[in-house]
Write a protein that binds this DNA or RNA. Sequence first.
DNA 1: AGGCGCTTGTGAACACGTGCACAAATCGCG
DNA 2: CGCGATTTGTGCACGTGTTCACAAGCGCCT
Lengths: 256, 256
Amino acid sequence: MSQHRHPGAPGRAGAVPALPDLPEATVARLPEYLRALHNLAETGNETISSEGLANAAGVNSAKLRKDLSHLGSYGTRGVGYDVTLLIEQIEYVLGLTQRRAVALVGVGNLGHALAGYDGFAGRGFRIAALLDADPARVGEEINGLVVQHVEELPRVAAEESIAIGVIATPAAAAQRVADQLVAVGVTSILNFAPCVLSVPDGVDVRKVDLAIELQILSFHEHRKASLTALPAAGGSALTALPGGLAVTESQEAIGT
Amino acid sequence: MSQHRHPGAPGRAGAVPALPDLPEATVARLPEYLRALHNLAETGNETISSEGLANAAGVNSAKLRKDLSHLGSYGTRGVGYDVTLLIEQIEYVLGLTQRRAVALVGVGNLGHALAGYDGFAGRGFRIAALLDADPARVGEEINGLVVQHVEELPRVAAEESIAIGVIATPAAAAQRVADQLVAVGVTSILNFAPCVLSVPDGVDVRKVDLAIELQILSFHEHRKASLTALPAAGGSALTALPGGLAVTESQEAIGT
DNA sequence: AGGCGCTTGTGAACACGTGCACAAATCGCG
DNA sequence: CGCGATTTGTGCACGTGTTCACAAGCGCCT
C-alpha cells in the first residue's frame, strides 16, 4: 500500500530504496536534526527553513542543506522543508521505522542508569533484555525487566532478534561480552567500557567514554588558562592554579 | 616551584610551556593513548613502539606517530617511546597534572550513575559537588557527597574552584543550568541532556547523547540489511516496511 | 499574469585529517 | 668500530568534510 506516501520510497522510479551511502559525518548529524524536528513539530511548525533548522540543531545552514541533499531531500525553494515529511525521511534512513531491540549487558552503576533511561524508548529503541555475569545480580528487576545471566544470551537473542548490544561492564569483561554478542549475530555494539574492542569485519562498534570527554575538556581548560596567563607574563605557576577569574562575560550567554 | 621537574616543561630552554595548539582530532585521541599507556605501565612495560601502542589504542601507527610528534614527542628511534615519560607528557598537555574539580548538576537516573562512576577519580577528576533543582533530592548522600540545591552553585564554585560542569538534567532544564554554570565562571561543560546549548565564546561544550549513538548504529544496521537484501531483488515494499526480515544474515558476522 | 523576494540545492575552493613510504637516527652485536 | 636491524619523524598525495556563493525554483502579492 501507498508506497508513494511512505517516507522511505524516494521519488525516483526505481523500486529499490537502496540507501545512498551517506558521508559518516552526515549520518552522525541526522539524529540531531531529527530531535530538533520533533521539537519543532511539537511546537506546531509545519515547515522549517534550513536556517531555522540549522539553528535548532546547532550547525551551519549550508552544511544542513548539503546533508539533507544527500538523502534526496524534499525541500521546497522559497518555503523550506515540510517538518513531518522530513521526520519520516530521516527516520527511514536511520532505520527507525522499526523499533530495534537492544540487549544491555552489565547492570552495574552505569547499566542501571541506562536501563532506566527513557530516552531510548522515545527514540526508536526498546531495551529487550538486561544481562549480567554476576549471579548476585541475576533476578533483580529494573524498570520492569528482570536481569538474566549473560549465558542466556543465545536464547534471548533468538527470542527477541536483538539488533544492537550495549556493553556497560567493567573493561576487563568487555571483550568477552563483545565476543558473545558477535557470536549470537549482533552486528552493532555500543561500548561504554574504557577499552578497545576487536570485532570481525562487518560489525560496527561505537564507543562512549565519559572520562575521555572530560579529558578533552580538560585540555581546552588547560589551553585557555595558559593563553590568558601569557599576556600577563606573570606566573607560570598561576597557569596551573586558576583561582576565580569568573563572571565577566556571562551576560553574553543569555542572548539566545 | 620545581618547574623543571614537572613533566610539562618541554626540554627546550623557554620558561613558558605554551601549549602547541594540537589538531582537534589529535586531542580526542590523546586520552585513548593515555589509557593504553597506563595499561602498559601496569603490565611492566618500560618502552613501547608506535606499532604496539597503536594496536593497544586501536589506531593506525602512522597516525599515532604524527599525533605524538605534534607535542614534540620524545621517542627514541630504534627503540620506541618511554612509557612513563610519555604518560607524563600527555597528562601535562591534557592538563591532568592538577586534579580538576567537577560539579555535577542533575542527580536523576544518569546523574546517580555518574556520581558513582569511579572512572573519574582514577583519571584526573574529582567530583566536587552534586547539585539538583529538586528540593526532594537535596540532602541525599551519594558516594559520600551530599546533594545540594543548584542555587548553592555560586558558593560551591567559589569554595571548590570548579573547572568543569556536567549537566545531567532533563533537556528542559539544561540551558538554564548552563547559564548558571557560565555565570559562576565555568568554561567547560559536558552536556548529557539531549539539546543544543548556547554559550558565550570561550566556553567549550561537549555533548554526549546516548540515543544518538544508538541511532547511528541503527543506520548502519539498516544499511547492512538493505545491502544483503539487494541481491535477492525481492520487494521494495519489504524494504520500506521491514515487518520481520530480521535474523537472516546474522551468520555473516561470525567470520572473523 | 508577471515580477519580486525568499529558500533550496550545488559547484568549487578551501581546510582538515589520514596513510603511505622513506630518510634519519639509534641500539646491539660481532 | 662499523654494520645491520629497527623504529621514529615527516614530506607528500589523497580523501573527507566544510564553507562560500550563486543560479534555479517556488510562492505570494500586486
